[in-house]
């Protein structure tokens, strides 16, 4: 399976945009990615081992968080995983308190 790496995390995958891994589930694929590129661990997971809240993982076009099996969802060699950090923001609710 191929895992697509977003721009900011390619620093930790030797600049690779796509990493090929083996794994029977989403979790195994991500584990293989971290095994090959250990620095990814802290950027994907919290100290408790949970996916960081702002890290989205998509299996093809589906958000893994909303799949029935979540990270234990089975995958095939032709599936694609995409890691995509969230993007959001906005103005202060009252006045400007920008730092």
């Amino acid at each position: 399976m191929e895992i697509h790496i977003p721009t900011p995390l390619r620093t930790y995958t030797d600049k690779k945009e796509t990493v090929s891994v083996d794994g029977a589930t989403v979790a195994e694929g991500l584990a293989a990615l971290v095994a090959a590129h250990p620095a990814m661990q802290q950027h994907l997971y919290t100290a408790e081992g949970k996916l960081r809240s702002f890290v989205n993982v998509y299996l093809n076009d589906d958000d893994v968080r909303y799949l029935p099996g979540k990270e234990e969802t089975a995958v095939s060699a032709t599936d694609e995983l995409t890691i995509i950090p969230s993007i959001a923001g906005g103005t202060p609710s009252a006045g400007c308190c920008c730092r």
Binding site: P8, G89, C98, R99
Partner: peptide, 14 residues
């Protein structure tokens, strides 16, 4: 100018 919300939600380094 960036807001605290912009900063908190920023994760795309570089």
């Amino acid at each position: 100018q960036w807001s605290p919300t912009d900063f908190a939600e920023a994760h795309w380094f570089g």
